[in-house]
Write a protein that binds this DNA or RNA. Structure first.
Length: 401
RNA sequence: GGUCCCUUCGUCUAACGGUUAGGACACAAGAUUUUCAUUCUUGAAAUAGGGGUUCGAUUCCCCUAGGGACUA
């Protein structure tokens, strides 16, 4: 069983994190191979650089050379478009707000890319994510735990919330124990070209985009109306407390439902360019001024092409205590910890990247899973992922309905 | 048709005859952020037009262009 070194393919992105991750693997005694993937080249709606992927490839290659590891290149553009970008368009078209990067990890990095890595003889696939994996052994076999990164400020476990045990089994996260400043420091000491490169932002592989422009490749703009809903609307008179004691399925369903706005609930205050370009909680881009406090999107209806807004950051339309996840969209990274119908468990949840973990209870019912937060949550947005943690372990996630 | 009252950044508005004409929202640019958002900082931006009176006019007066439950 000894002898040959374990071979790891590291996804070199051309950034600092994966660069240092490669080095860490070498220090840990693995045979390391760098593999760069090209996933996107279209620049429609992309701000900044015209050809970012080529710059990144150059940097990744330079890093591989510096570390003296083999470098390979793979073009996954077709798969990325089919499994990430098309999903994005489809979700926005339905009036939901997708998280392409979560899909990118599930469908590309830890699927198609992983397959390519295996073709190179890999035992494991590594990435520069700030998160940790721990494997425990039980009588039922190995169980892989996805843990938050040691650097609480950079923890990226959220983006991996849709991974499976099978994917996790082959994954390594070399920098999960490190703090970001230390990663940069190491890169500097190694004189890696990526040492002082700015962290990437925006959609992974695509970059920072002007979303309406990007989406207009596929979704057409069409003028619709914007309605202002007063905070005292009866729509907000929900008895949130009902969910704290023996809630029925009806109570769950009612409280987890987005507010059903209708034009008669408010007044028309402007026009927009397509309801599917907006998301819950959004402030910028409405182009409606003159109100004493900012307006936030509190609802969108793509069937009637309507956008509903509320004034002020405390508007009740921005808050809810309950969300629903369809049964088929409940995903347990730890199937062994999955709740059975009728069960519930107290845990911590976040509904977007970098949101501080929130206390709440997950209820598994016959008609779906429901998360009840201790405190009302701002901007619960259909299409986004709710990820739940038990201590510092991400045990499951699901798409918000 | 008469006697009145209004007119300031894109919008809503503030300014004893003396201010770099202020603020909020919107917008823009940066910062933060491997989703979408949020948040933070900075910036650009106006006295309807024309005449007066005053050392000095957004402010007072007079004319031309847009709104008001007094008038057979």
């Amino acid at each position: 069983m000894t002898g040959r070194k374990k071979r790891v393919v590291i996804g070199l992105s051309g950034g600092v994190d994966s660069s240092v991750a490669a080095r860490v693997l070498m220090d840990q005694g693995y045979e390391v191979i760098g593999l760069f993937m090209k996933n996107w080249h279209d620049t429609t709606g992309v701000l900044e650089s015209d050809c970012p992927w080529l710059d990144d490839k150059y940097d990744a290659e330079a890093v591989a050379r510096k570390l003296n590891i083999p470098f390979h290149f793979v073009d996954l553009s077709a798969e990325y478009r089919a499994r990430v970008v098309d999903y994005m368009f489809a979700e926005y078209e339905k009036g939901r707000t997708p998280n392409p990067d979560v899909l990118c990890n599930r469908e590309i990095k830890f699927d198609v890319f992983m397959e390519k890595a295996f073709e190179l003889g890999a035992d494991y696939v590594a990435t520069g994510h700030y998160c940790r994996k721990e494997t425990i052994f039980t009588e039922n076999g190995e169980i892989h735990r996805l843990l938050a990164g040691a650097d609480g400020n950079k923890d990226q476990s959220y983006f991996l919330c849709q991974l499976s045990q099978k994917q996790l089994a082959k994954a390594l996260f070399p920098i999960g124990e490190m703090m970001k400043p230390d990663v940069r420091k190491v890169a500097g000491e190694l004189k890696l070209i990526t040492a002082h490169k700015k962290d990437s932002q925006g959609i992974c592989f695509v970059g920072k985009v002007d979303l309406p422009v990007f989406l207009q490749q596929k979704l057409k703009a069409k003028e619709g109306r914007v309605f202002l809903i007063p905070p005292e609307s009866e729509l907000f008179e929900r008895n949130w407390g009902a969910v704290d004691e023996n809630p029925t399925d009806e109570v769950f369903e009612e409280l987890a439902h987005p507010y059903p706005f209708h034009p008669r609930d408010g007044q028309k205050i402007g026009e927009h360019n397509g309801a599917h370009f907006y998301t819950i909680g959004q402030r910028k881009g409405l182009d409606i001024g003159g109100f004493p406090e900012p307006l936030f999107v509190i609802g969108i209806n793509v069937d009637y092409n309507q956008v509903y807004v509320g004034m002020g950051k405390e508007h009740p339309g921005l808050y809810r205590r309950v969300l629903k996840i369809l049964n088929e969209e409940v995903h347990w990274i730890r199937p062994d910890l999955a709740l059975k119908d009728g069960e519930s468990r107290r845990l911590k949840i976040r509904i977007r990247y970098r949101q501080p973990l929130q206390n709440g209870i997950l209820y598994q019912r016959e008609n779906g899973a429901f998360i009840v937060f201790d405190e009302p949550q701002r901007g619960i947005t259909p299409g986004q992922f709710a990820a739940w943690y038990e201590n510092d372990e991400l045990t499951g996630s699901g798409v918000i309905s």
